[in-house]
Design a protein around this nucleic acid. Structure first.
Lengths: 360, 360
DNA sequence: TTATTGCGTGAGACCGGTCTCAATGATAAT
DNA sequence: ATTATCATTGAGACCGGTCTCACGCAATAA
C-alpha cells in the first residue's frame, strides 16, 4: 500500500497568492469564489492562477467546509439493468446539481452493505442512497441517520424506519400481473424471486425481510386468493439469486407432475434464465407456459414472442430519490417522505390461456 | 449550495486521545495503524475509540497522505452493457485492492470527458482510467500524465500517447466477422457504428478519431478487399449514436434498391435496434439478412434466431486495466504496456447465405 | 474638521488527520 | 557507576483549503 512515487506537488492558493502579490486569504477569496474582492485584484489573481495552472484541491476544500460534494450509493446488484437505470437516474440528477456519485455494490449481502456504508461514511459523503438488502439488521442505517447525514432509501422501504423512501407500487403491480394470468384461466402459477434464502419453497411471510419482495408476494397471494387458486397451486419460489439457481428452480418446477402453467419473474435477469430453460426444454411460450416479468428490460421486446412486463420506471425512481436527497442536502427540513412510483403493465405476447390438462 | 444543517461533529483522534489519557500523536498511531505503540496503550486507545464510536475521516487522511484511495473512471456510456461489465471488472479489482471507484460518464463527448477529468483530478483521485472519446484532443490526458498521476486507457488506444492501454483485437475481430459473411457468399455488407459524425456515409479513415472504430473499419475493409467485394458494396455507416439514429440508418439501408444482405453492428445497443427495425419490416433473419454484432449481450441468446456475436471479454478488460493501474499506484515503475485482449466469435443462428437476387 | 460607515485586505486559527523530531525512561554494555 | 542503545511517547509542524477578525483607508455624515 505504500506508494513509492513522491507526493505529487500541485499549485496551491499560497503559490498563486505569491505570484499575484497578494495575501493567501485574498487569493483564496477569488479562487474559492467567496467574500469580496476588488475587480482589479480579482483579475490579477485569476491571471496568476491561469499562468500557474492552478487546480483547486477539492479534498482540502471538503476538509474545511465539511462537505464533499459526493453522494454515496449502495445498491444490490449493478449487473441488474433495473439498478443500472436507477443509478443512471441518480447520477444524472446528482451531476446536474453539482454532486458526484460513489457507487458501491452490496451483492445483496448485509455484511457487504455494512462495509460499503462504513467506507462511504469514512469518505465523508454528504448523503447516502441505499437499497437495503434486509430489514432485520439496519443498525448501520440508523447510525447514518443519527449522525445527521441525510439518507434516502431506494426501491425498498423499511417499515419502522422513517426516512425519505422511493419505491414502486410492488404489491399492486404483482397483484395486477397475477390477475392478468388468473383472468386468462391460469390456476397453477409460480412466482420466482431472488431473495437470499435456503433455496426452499416459501412457507410464510415471516421469512421475508425485504419489503419489495414481501409486498410482491402479498400482491401475488392476494390475487390468487381472489381468483380462488388453491394454496398448493400458488408456488412462491425463493432463492433465485444466481442464473444457476434460477435454472435449477425452473427446471424443478417444470419437472413436477403438475407443473405451473404460468410464471412471474421478480426481475429480468431471472426471466431471461427462465426463458432459456423453457426453450431448452422445447416448451413454447405462451402456448405451454405464460411468462410475465418485472422490469421492461431491452431484450423483452425482441424475443419471440415478446415478453409481457411490469414496467418499473427505474430511471425516474433514481431521479426521484436523488432529488429528495439533494433537497435535504441543500438544507430543506421537512418530515420524511415516502414516494411510491406507479408501475404499468405492458402486455406483449407471452401470456395465453393455459393448454389442456395433459399437455406438457 | 449553502447547507443549513450545522457541521456534523464527529469524533476525532484528539477526542479519543483525551478519553484514553494519551497524546494525540499516540492515539493517531494506533488508530492510523502506523509507528510503534505499547500493547497496553494500544488497548486503552482502542477501548476509548470503541466507546466514543470513532470513525476515521478519510478526507483528512487523504489530505496529508496525498492519497485518496479512489480511482476515477471516465467511460463513454454506462448504459451500454459492454461498459457496464468493464466497469464491474474495474470495481471488483479495485475494491479487492482497497480502492474505491468514482464513475463519470462522458456521453462520448470530448467536452464532457474533459469536464469529468477536471472534476476527478480536483477530487485528487489516485489514478484514472479513461475511455478516450477522441484521439485529436487529448491535452487533458497529457495533463494528467504530466502531473504524475497514473493513467490507463480502456478499450481505445491513442497512437502517439504512450500509456498503459488495454484494448481488444478490434481489427482482427472485425476482419474475422466479415470473413464469416463473405465466406457465406455475402457481397453487399454494411458495417454500422456509433461514432459521432455528421450522420453521413463513411468516406475516408481521416474522419475517424477513435482507435477502436478505426481498426474495426480497417478490418472490415480488409476482409472485403480480400473477398473481392466492390467498394460501393461495402457500406460503412457512421452516426448510430442513438436508437433513433440507428433506426433511421438501418431503414435507409434496407430501403435501397440493392440493400445489403448482411450487417455488422459495432455494439449490442445498435444491434438491438437493427433487429427491431428488421423484424418490423417483416424481414427474416438470417434468411433475408444476416446479422453479426460486437459484444455478447445477454439478449443475443434469446432471440429467434440467436445472434452470432463477437465476444469481447468486457469484464476481463476492466479487470486488466484496473490491475495495470493499481500496480502502478503501488509504485511499480515500468514502461507503459499495451495489452490487446483476444476476442472470439460465437456463431449462433443469425448468419446464412444471402437469398437470391430479387429477394426482399 | 471629526466621527461614522464600510469596503477591501491581511494575519492567523482551524479542519482532522500524518509525520518528524526531540525527550523520556528502561535496559544493556563498559 | 557511567554511558550507549532502544523502545515509547509527546509536542508541534504540516497538508491546502475556508473563515473569522482586526485593521487601514476612503467616502459619507455631522
Amino acid at each position: 500500500m505504500n506508494s513509492s512515487n513522491p507526493r505529487i506537488h500541485s499549485v496551491t492558493v499560497a503559490d498563486v497568492a505569491r505570484e499575484a502579490g497578494v495575501s493567501k486569504a485574498t487569493a483564496a477569496r477569488v479562487l474559492g469564489n467567496y467574500g469580496v474582492v476588488s475587480e482589479k485584484i480579482r483579475g490579477d489573481v485569476l491571471a496568476a492562477a491561469r499562468q500557474l495552472d492552478y487546480r483547486p484541491n477539492e479534498l482540502a476544500r471538503s476538509m474545511t467546509t465539511g462537505r464533499s460534494g459526493i453522494i454515496g450509493v449502495v445498491v444490490g446488484d449493478i449487473e441488474n439493468s433495473f439498478f443500472g437505470y436507477a443509478v443512471r437516474g441518480i447520477s444524472d440528477t446528482a451531476r446536474s446539481a453539482g454532486f458526484n456519485v460513489i457507487l458501491a455494490n452490496s451483492s445483496e449481502q448485509i455484511e457487504m452493505e455494512k462495509a460499503a456504508v462504513r467506507v462511504l461514511i469514512g469518505k465523508r459523503v454528504d448523503g447516502l442512497i441505499v437499497t437495503p438488502s434486509e430489514s432485520r439488521d439496519i443498525s448501520h442505517l440508523r447510525d447514518i441517520h443519527r449522525s445527521g447525514r441525510p439518507l434516502a432509501l431506494l426501491d425498498r422501504a423499511l417499515p419502522d424506519f422513517d426516512v425519505d423512501t422511493v419505491t414502486v407500487d410492488d404489491r399492486n403491480a404483482a397483484q395486477r400481473a397475477t390477475e392478468i394470468l388468473t383472468a386468462c384461466g391460469h390456476r397453477r402459477i409460480a412466482y420466482i424471486t431472488a431473495v437470499d434464502f435456503a433455496g426452499h419453497e416459501y412457507t410464510d411471510l415471516g421469512q421475508i425481510y425485504t419489503s419489495s419482495v414481501r409486498e410482491r408476494i402479498e400482491g401475488f397471494m392476494n390475487a390468487c386468493n381472489i381468483a380462488g387458486v388453491p394454496p398448493q397451486d400458488r408456488l412462491v419460489m425463493l432463492g433465485a439469486t444466481t442464473p444457476q439457481a434460477t435454472a435449477e428452480i425452473t427446471t424443478n418446477l417444470l419437472s413436477r407432475p403438475s407443473p405451473p402453467t404460468a410464471i412471474i419473474a421478480s426481475d429480468s435477469v431471472i426471466a431471461l434464465e427462465i426463458f432459456k430453460v423453457v426453450r431448452q426444454r422445447g416448451l413454447r411460450i405462451p402456448e405451454d407456459l405464460s411468462l410475465i416479468t418485472f422490469h421492461d428490460a431491452d431484450w423483452t421486446t425482441v424475443t419471440s414472442p415478446p415478453i409481457t412486463v411490469i414496467d418499473q420506471p427505474a430511471y425516474v425512481l433514481g431521479q426521484t430519490v436523488a432529488e429528495l436527497l439533494i433537497r435535504r442536502l441543500k438544507g430543506e427540513a421537512r418530515p420524511p417522505e415516502r414516494i411510491i412510483v406507479p408501475t404499468s403493465i405492458i402486455e406483449r405476447g407471452s401470456v395465453a390461456p393455459p393448454a389442456m390438462q395433459c399437455k406438457i
